[in-house]
Simulated scan of single mutants.
Amino acid sequence: MIERIGFIGTGTITEAIVTGLAAQPRGLREIWVSPRNHETAAGLSHEHPLVHVGRDNQDVADRCTVLCLAIRPQIARQVLSELRLGPTHRVLSFVATWNRERLAALMPDVAHIVRLAPLPMVAQAMGPTIVFPADPVAIELFAPLGTAIAVDDEDAFDSLFASTALMGSFFAMLERHAIWLQDKGIAYADARTYLASLFSGLARTAQTRLETFADLSKEFSTPGGLNEQMTADLERAGALDAQHLALDRVFERIKNR
């Protein structure tokens, strides 16, 4: 059972994970966060009694053998070059485009390096987290925060990670739909409530049913009906294929960093 965990980097993802962990600590007695983002760190410490703010990154690393790297790729080299880590550390890295080989080069004494891709929804215990390689500590921490999906190779991790880039476009699509409804005389608040509920229900259907997405699309599209028409129009416009092209570009960016 994990009793103490530390976070290097105190941004949005750290805030979400700490919020989720603190809500159901399951044996966790202490969560240590770095002070770089003072406002977020202080807020977490004030809200959750088990959260403590370290003096600096090294202080957090000295206190915790399970250490989460929640830093931007642009500053990863500088931050890691200043840290003294040893074989007792287990590093869970959220550094988006850094593979294990690149991480290991800057942490040569660390025996366990695991890549993860937690999402903001873990704050509500609703988020999927990709894990590579399969690691019992990472799975113990993140499975209760939604779903922990362990993969066998780094290419699989990067492919799934590329899919996380769909989040922004998903909300952008909902915004376009909400504005369309607003133009038809629907109050934006009502449009937002309706669309959020609609897509939440569809996501729940996908989670609880075992059919392929193609089969569900067919089931939810009456022949000659409105859903069939909408899908056909989007396909003719190339809207669905455009998402594949965008994902390919994201994947290439991940692999080439």
Rank of each mutant, 00 (worst) to 15 (best):
S81A: 15
S45F: 02
L83P: 01
L83W: 02
L69V: 04
N37K: 06
V53A: 03
W98F: 12
D56T: 10
F94M: 15
A105H: 13
P49M: 10
A96T: 15
S93Q: 13
A42C: 06
Q78R: 15
R100A: 09
G43H: 10
P87R: 10
T88Y: 07
H89G: 01
H48M: 07
R26F: 07
A61G: 02
V66K: 00
L50T: 12
R72E: 05
L21E: 10
M107T: 14
S93W: 11
G86D: 15
M107K: 12
L106M: 12
P73K: 08
N99T: 11
Q74R: 10
C68D: 01
V66R: 00
S45P: 00
R102T: 12
I71W: 00
P108A: 08
R100I: 15
A61I: 04
R26M: 13
R77I: 15
L44T: 10
W98A: 14
W98S: 11
D109R: 14
L67G: 02
I31Q: 04
S45H: 06
R100Y: 06
G86N: 13
L92R: 11
I31Y: 05
R63A: 10
L85E: 05
A96L: 15
V66L: 00
L85T: 08
A23I: 14
S81Q: 15
G86Q: 05
L50F: 02
H52R: 11
S81W: 09
S45T: 09
N99I: 08
Q78A: 15
M107Q: 03
L50P: 01
